[in-house]
Amino acid sequence: MSGLETLLDSRRVWRAQEIATDSGPTTLATGHAALDAALPGHGWPRDAVSELLSGGAGSGELGLLWPLLSRLGGEAGPVVLIAPPGVPYPAAWRRAGVALAQCYWLDVGGREALWATEQSLRAGCCAAVVAWLPQADARALRRLQIASASGETPGFVHRPLGRASEASPAALRLRLHPGAELEVLKCRGGRPPSGRIRYGRPAGESMTSDPVTSRRRDNPRGAPTQAGIARAAPRER
């Protein structure tokens, strides 16, 4: 017992439960009821880095973050995207409810992306900082974690699935599965819930119910059935 206390005193081990009870409302609701219920803080950590591991763009990362980004909506400051995997499509972001006037993205890479992320987190004026940093290692993440805590700015770092096995100082680690499902790998303040959490509709689902689909009949080329094209696609090579 005394051995355990020595270990705790030396601060090399932290008590998972302690932080959740000590700290007040240091989280931001994710906007997904199922996810909020599963996380020990009932939301995204407010002054820490959350790490999102995925197979790349299109894994549902925007569906996951958009509710938060749209709720912060300009009042809490600008949202800064750093080194995103593509050009943000303004129409899609507006449809998701994000205030475009308060949304900026930085077209940089490598070391500069890490620097910009740290600066933005530390400045303490951004509503949220979302970065794509496949190059970041545990040391870099620790720096970002400190910057996020000192700037009291929530940070979201996207990294590839290959990094899942590495240790990470992020306060929350999520693994995204296509089809709007995720797994909690690590969360500060509690034991990670087991199993996959379904947090919303799969991305782009609304397109199915779009008027465009019904207009298919007017397609002069004579639209094949969806399944038909799916089978035809590989053959067209």
Binding site: L62, P88, A91, D210
Partner: peptide, 28 residues
């Protein structure tokens, strides 16, 4: 724009054939 648009647009379209598993909606 009212129709569904992707969150990310690639700066230049790239050729892809075998990677497509299933068509879910379209065409537009």
């Amino acid at each position: 724009e009212r129709r569904a648009r992707p969150g990310w647009l690639l700066p230049a379209p790239t050729r892809c054939d075998s990677e497509i598993a299933e068509l879910l909606a379209g065409p537009e």
